[in-house]
Write a protein that binds this DNA or RNA. Structure first.
Length: 642
RNA sequence: GCUGCUGUGGCUCAGGGGCAGAGCACGUCCUUGGUAAGGACGAGGUCAUGGGUUCAAAUCCCAUCAGCAGCUCCA
């Protein structure tokens, strides 16, 4: 007999070799039917896993994250099987689950097309309809290598060889004529998959290495029911509508030009207006928090970049030199060397520190062509940069202040979700980094303590530190869940060294200054790109380039409309009028499509009573109110940044 | 940079070796209207660029440029 402990603490006894599935059915018919796998003592196992000793068991159903992953992983196998049928020479790579689905990589002679996806889906549907049983098998490493070698699967052979040190046997899952190396668990038969969809095709390097061959990757997803699948596909469509590139065009915010060059953004008046509001807010916040604002040039002599180390370490990301008067100049990819030069113009005392110099600095980087993406990855951008010079004893406090600042900024723009990473040195590769061990340890623990102090969840990224210092990075997500680095706090041991940046301590001695690079938004381009997707273009009133549009019912009300416009403008409200010769419904529709927060409709009634009929983007028709009442309301909203 | 796909009026897109299309937007006129599209007429395109095949190329082929998806990269 074996004793099985269930998640609710209940204990049940069964005959030896009882399977997970049998236990699940014993607990309840419903659980048995929705079961996909089990978890014995925390390890995922198949439904037909025989229980041989006392265990704690939880039944994994398709409604849990783990269950969904199993379902998707099995769907990936079905897809691979289908691809194998349609392309008999296919060599299989890997096929894992990912956040919202799965993929599988194939090495094929011919390129897969969109039409092929439909064919593959059909074949998958057939495999599912045939309800082919799925079996697990274990095999020794040597036999596995031989088996996959004979099957003409070099990638699998490579994978198995990589597993060698972990044990003597590897597991395979077999369904009909398809066998795949896999840890499992899997569904018991292919018919268990009820709703799937293949989404896209892309290239992907084998094992993610640029020097490896490029395989063809097919992305897909699966859900327990058709309804959930459709809901997900609907969400994808909705997310597409939030795409900042589309909204930027629709709302006339910015553009890119073939004639201008890839990755170079042109800000139209309305986009520039939003940017200007953000920059004004940014300046005010900086002055309030003890920063001073500086400006520096866009280009500088090549020698400066040799001194800073950029020419050595960063050259391939820089635009090539420009020759002027037999001197070579470079467009700046970063602002820091300029901050260093300015620091050096005076002898600094510990009494001067901390010094916080902020700069909206426009930089240019030669990003590889394939990585450009709307405003989110560009070649010319403006960092909301700052360089803080401080003493070691001030470091901790300064980091905490920057974290608070970044959080306040993200909050001001309604970003509630973001990921925080602490990038530190990799173990055993200390020589890759500049600076003494002692200093690194102090710096890493300062960043760590600051995050702890602010009670922030973060992921520790070993080996992700820059060569010149550790960092805290904050990542914001776009409409379809891709994470983009925004605010960053980087400690720098390199520039103070290279430029000889020091201060006089109270002992009268020179000490090396600590330099912090930081941004609290990231860059104007990326931040506003994310902001557009975050609000789906429906900007809160304080950010909306046009806050109010006044619509006359007929042109007999135009005078009243202009009067209202003046009243609003004298109260610093940004307002436009729509006196076009169109019906009211038509003008309202256009106003909504322009995502204007407030439309004020005025006709005879309003003119007589001195009121406006308010239609908000958020709540629709709100009825008439006195003009001064409306003005107070919108002023308050702007003030509160709602 | 790599793999695949795409490029037709301001926008969204159809067409696919034989005279360049639609809707929206734009202009003029009619219409003076009450909370998401009133009507008529009109103007607007060397079909991304360069080369090739062909009697004939927007259409087929090659290259280049730009964009999209993903990979890689991201001081």
């Amino acid at each position: 007999m074996v004793k099985v402990t269930l998640p609710d603490g209940a204990e049940k006894s069964f005959l030896d070799d009882v399977t997970v599935k049998e236990v699940a059915f014993d607990v309840g018919e419903g659980l048995g039917k929705s079961a996909l796998a089990g978890k014995t003592n925390g390890v995922l196992v198949d439904l037909d896993f025989p229980i041989k000793e006392d265990v704690s068991l939880s039944v994994v159903t398709e409604n849990s994250k783990e269950g969904l992953d199993i379902l998707r992983h099995s769907t990936a196998h079905i897809m691979a099987m289908a691809v194998g049928h349609l392309f008999p020479d296919a060599k299989f790579g890997i096929g894992p689950t990912i956040e919202n689905g799965f993929y599988y990589d194939f090495d094929l002679k011919e390129a897969i097309t969109q039409d092929d996806l439909a064919r593959i889906e059909e074949e998958m549907a057939r495999i599912i309809k045939d309800d082919i049983p799925v079996y697990r098998e274990e095999m020794g490493i040597a036999d596995s290598v031989k088996f996959m070698g004979e099957a003409g699967q070099p990638y699998k052979v490579e994978l198995i060889k990589g597993l060698e040190e972990n044990g003597e046997a590897v597991s395979f899952y077999k369904q009909g004529d398809f066998v795949d190396l896999c840890r499992g668990p899997h569904v018991q038969s292919t018919g268990r998959v009820k709703a799937f969809k293949l989404l896209s095709i892309a290239g992907a390097y084998w094992r993610g290495k640029e020097t490896n061959p490029m395989l063809q990757r097919i992305y897909g997803t699966a859900f327990p029911t058709k309804k959930e699948l459709n809901k997900y596909l609907e969400c994808l469509k909705e997310a597409e509508k939030r795409d900042h590139r589309k909204i930027g065009k629709d709302l006339d915010l910015f553009s890119f030009h073939e004639e201008g060059g890839p990755g170079l953004a042109f800000w139209h008046p309305k986009g520039a207006f939003i940017r200007n509001i953000i920059e004004t807010f940014w300046r005010k916040e900086h002055y309030q928090r003890g920063y001073e604002i500086v400006y520096s040039p866009h280009i500088a002599k090549l020698d400066l970049w040799k001194t800073s180390g950029h020419w050595g370490f960063y050259r391939e990301s820089m635009f090539p030199p420009i020759e002027i008067d037999e001197q070579e100049y470079l467009l700046k990819p970063m602002n820091c060397p300029f901050a260093a030069l300015m620091y050096k113009t005076k002898l600094r005392s510990y009494r001067d520190l901390p010094m916080r110099w902020a700069e909206l600095g426009t930089v240019y980087r030669y990003e590889r062509s394939g990585v450009l993406h709307g405003l989110l990855r560009v070649r010319g951008f403006t960092q909301d940069d700052a360089h803080i010079y401080c003493t070691p004893s001030q470091l901790q406090d300064e980091i905490i202040k920057v974290i608070e600042f970044a959080q306040d900024m993200l909050n001001a723009f309604g970003f509630k979700e973001y990921e925080v990473e602490l990038s530190v040195r990799g173990k055993g590769e200390e020589e890759k980094y500049i600076g003494e061990d002692k200093v690194w340890e102090m710096a890493e623990s300062s960043l760590y303590n600051a995050l702890k102090d602010k009670n922030i969840d973060f992921v520790r990224m070993e080996g992700e530190a820059k060569f010149y210092g550790p960092a805290i990075d904050i990542k914001v997500k776009d409409a379809i869940g891709r994470a983009w680095q925004g605010p960053t706090i980087q400690l720098d041991f390199n520039l103070p060294e290279r430029f000889g940046l020091y201060y006089i301590e109270n002992d009268g001695e020179k000490h090396k200054v600590i330099m912090i690079h930081r941004t609290v938004l990231g860059t104007m381009e990326r931040f506003i790109g994310c902001l557009i997707e975050h609000y789906a273009g429906n900007f809160p009133v304080w950010l909306a380039p046009v806050q109010v549009k006044v619509l006359p019912i007929t042109d007999a009300h135009n005078d009243f409309v202009f009067e209202i416009k003046e009243r609003l403008e004298s109260n610093d409200v940004r307002v436009e009028c729509d006196t076009r010769n169109l019906k009211t419904g038509n003008k309202i529709r256009d106003g909504i499509l322009e995502k204007i927060p407030y439309l004020l409709i005025v006709g005879d009634k309003e003119k007589e009573q001195g009121t406006v009929s308010v239609r908000s983007l958020k709540d629709g028709d709100e009825g008439s109110v006195g003009l001064s009442v409306f003005i107070e309301r919108i002023k308050e909203e702007i003030e509160k940044k709602e």
